[in-house]
C-alpha cells in the first residue's frame, strides 16, 4: 500500500479519508484558492498555449472590486455620524427636558412660598384670620409639609451582619417602630431622612425597604421630634420596643435608641390631596 504524500480533495483517491465527515473546515483551508485556477492552468498546459491575460478585463474587475470596498467604506462613514448624531440629539433632548422639569419644580416651590406668604398676610389683618393661620400651621406640621427642628428620639434598626446569620429588618418591624413612636407622642418622624406624612407607606420590595417608593438601606435611622423624655419612656415601655429587643437578642439585629437634643427633619414631598365627598342621601320618605 502506498501512502499518499499530500492528501487533497481535488485528487480523488480510492480510499476514504478518515475525517471525511468533517471535511468542511479542511476543504476551506486546503481549497482556499479557487480550484478553477489550477484547472485552467492544467488545461493550458495540456493545450500547450501560452495566452496573455486580457488585461482590460482583469483591470475592470479589480476596479469593480475596489469600488465595492470603497463604496462600503464611504457608506459606513456617511451613516456612522448620523447614528451618533441622533444619539447625541436624544441625549441633549433628555438633558433639556430634565432641566425644564427642574426649573418648573423650582417655580412651583417659589410660587407655593409666595402663596403661603400672601395667605398669611391677608389673614393677619383680622383676629379670626390669625386663629386660622395658627390652625393652618398646625395642619401643615401634622401633614409634614414643613421643615421642622427640635429635640426628640433617634431609633436605629440594623440588619444582622453576615457572620450573625444575616437576618434582615423587615418592613413590618419598621412600621411597628414608627407607629410606636407616633403613639408615644412624636410630632414628626423621618426614616433615613425621608419625612413621613399621613400618606407615607413603608413596605418591602425584594431586599429593599421602600419608604414612599424610595429604597432605603440598613441601618434605618428613625428620627422622631417630640418631648424627648416622654417619648423615650413611652417608647421604651411599649410592646414594640420589647419585641424588638427580643429580636435583637435572638437574631443579632441592631436595635437601640437615644435622646437627641436637636433634630432637623426635612419637609415631606408635596402631598396629593384627596377629598371625601358625602354620599348623596336619598330624600327621606314619609316618616312623620
Amino acid at each position: 500500500m502506498t501512502t499518499v504524500s499530500e492528501p487533497s480533495r481535488s485528487v480523488p483517491t480510492g480510499t476514504k479519508r478518515p475525517d471525511a465527515s468533517m471535511s468542511l473546515l479542511v476543504d476551506l483551508s486546503t481549497d482556499a484558492l479557487d480550484p478553477g485556477y489550477a484547472a485552467a492552468a492544467a488545461r493550458k498546459r495540456a493545450a500547450g498555449v501560452e495566452d496573455r491575460p486580457r488585461w482590460a478585463l482583469v483591470g475592470a474587475t479589480v476596479a469593480a472590486a475596489t469600488l465595492v470596498v470603497v463604496v462600503a467604506a464611504v457608506q459606513t462613514r456617511a451613516s456612522a455620524p448620523s447614528a451618533a448624531r441622533s444619539r447625541s440629539a436624544l441625549v441633549a433632548a433628555v438633558g433639556r427636558q430634565s432641566a425644564t422639569v427642574g426649573r418648573l419644580e423650582r417655580t412651583i416651590a417659589t410660587l407655593s412660598a409666595e402663596q403661603a406668604a400672601l395667605r398669611d398676610a391677608s389673614l393677619a389683618s383680622s383676629s379670626a384670620g390669625a386663629a386660622l393661620t395658627r390652625r393652618i400651621a398646625a395642619a401643615e406640621l401634622a401633614l409634614g409639609n414643613l421643615r421642622v427642628t427640635g429635640p426628640g428620639l433617634r431609633v436605629t434598626l440594623g440588619d444582622a451582619g453576615s457572620g450573625n446569620g444575616g437576618s434582615r429588618v423587615q418592613d413590618r418591624q419598621l412600621q411597628d417602630v414608627v407607629n410606636a413612636l407616633w403613639s408615644a407622642g412624636a410630632e414628626a418622624i423621618a426614616v433615613n431622612g425621608q419625612r413621613l406624612s399621613a400618606q407615607s407607606a413603608i413596605r418591602q420590595a425584594g431586599d429593599a425597604i421602600l419608604v414612599d417608593f424610595r429604597p432605603l438601606v440598613s441601618p434605618y435611622v428613625v428620627t422622631a421630634i417630640g418631648p424627648p423624655v416622654d417619648i423615650e419612656t413611652k417608647f421604651g415601655a411599649s410592646g414594640t420596643a420589647s419585641r424588638m429587643r427580643g429580636l435583637a437578642q435572638l437574631y443579632g439585629l441592631r436595635f437601640d435608641y437615644a435622646r437627641a437634643g436637636r433634630l432637623t427633619l426635612p419637609a415631606a414631598p408635596d402631598a396629593t390631596l384627596h377629598y371625601a365627598r358625602p354620599v348623596p342621601v336619598p330624600a327621606p320618605r314619609g316618616r312623620s
Partner: peptide
C-alpha cells in the same frame, strides 16, 4: 503561483 487566469478571476468575482 503563476497559474493566474483572467477568465477564472472575473467569473469567480
Amino acid at each position: 503561483e503563476a497559474i493566474f487566469d483572467d477568465r477564472v478571476f472575473v467569473i469567480s468575482f
